[in-house]
Amino acid sequence: MSDPNGPVRRRRIAGENKPAAPAAKPVVPKVPARKAAAKKAALQKAAPPAAPPARTVASPKTRPAKTAAPAADADSGSGSDLDLRRLLPAMLLALVAIVAGVLLTVMGVQNVRGEGGNEALETSREQAVSAASTAATTIFSFSSDQLDEHVSASKALMTPSFAKDFDKVAPALTEVTANRRIVVKAEALEAAPLACGDECSPSKVNVLVFLDQARLVGAAKQPTVFANRISVSMVKSDDGWLVDNIRAL
């Protein structure tokens, strides 16, 4: 029977053991708050850093292709333009050298003209220069159909000794012009007396002559021009200034 003032106790049945005592609950030791925080911080420090999130790599198909810069951008122009650029400086240098050479030659001729102070000597030299220009034009101009006239006219402008030397080379003109029509026209472009130093003489002058020869062969209409530079030795005689020698320079 139950007691209204307390729990009801059940009667044991014969042979029933006594009920086991309830197991004791384990006691968890309490850790102070400061020690727990320090332990947590130490664990976080010892733990390896988290790996960064993986990047999503775009597929090669979706990535826009790079456009290669054209080779011409490094140096604009075609191959021929590049060749011209390399050659142009060399061509300009060659042209400058030619012009400088011509100017120096002309200046040298002008300086030679001013050499000396004797008025009679200067007059003789000027006459020799004029005679040398005329003689060179005559001697170096000829036509294949008038060789005899050419030889006679040339020898008339020479000293007897040099005329003999000219007779030795005159037959070569006949051989060269055999069965061919050849016309050569010479022109003295510039002439001046060469320096004579202490050997200047009013009766003998060496003259520098720049001579062009325009040659026509056969039925050609455009002549071939040859530029020559010669030294003409002029000697004064009773017949005027005569050619005593000619040397190619």
Rank of each mutant, 00 (worst) to 15 (best):
221 K>D: 14
176 V>D: 00
159 T>H: 05
132 A>N: 06
103 L>Q: 05
221 K>A: 09
111 N>P: 00
58 A>S: 10
60 P>N: 11
209 V>W: 02
133 S>H: 01
184 V>H: 01
131 A>M: 04
142 F>C: 03
236 K>G: 02
106 V>K: 11
131 A>V: 04
113 R>H: 08
25 K>S: 12
56 T>F: 06
107 M>S: 03
142 F>D: 02
121 L>I: 04
126 E>R: 07
74 A>L: 15
11 R>T: 07
144 S>E: 03
211 L>M: 09
41 A>M: 07
49 P>D: 12
222 Q>R: 12
189 L>G: 14
2 S>Y: 03
25 K>N: 05
18 K>R: 11
169 V>A: 09
239 D>A: 15
1 M>F: 04
116 G>K: 10
187 E>T: 13
160 P>C: 01
108 G>Q: 06
153 A>Q: 05
25 K>G: 08
117 G>V: 13
7 P>S: 13
91 M>P: 00
2 S>T: 07
117 G>R: 12
213 Q>M: 04
39 K>D: 09
219 A>Q: 14
12 R>F: 12
77 G>H: 08
193 P>Y: 01
102 V>F: 09
17 N>L: 12
62 T>R: 08
165 D>I: 04
136 A>W: 00
62 T>S: 14
146 Q>W: 00
70 P>D: 11
142 F>S: 01
203 S>D: 14
229 R>I: 10
187 E>F: 05
80 S>K: 08
102 V>M: 05
32 P>W: 01
199 E>Q: 12
130 S>A: 15
40 K>S: 14
172 A>N: 07
127 Q>Y: 01
147 L>Y: 08
209 V>Y: 00
40 K>G: 08
135 A>F: 00
13 I>H: 07
83 D>I: 13
48 P>L: 14
234 M>C: 04
170 A>W: 00
209 V>F: 01
75 D>K: 05
83 D>K: 06
33 A>Y: 02
181 R>W: 03
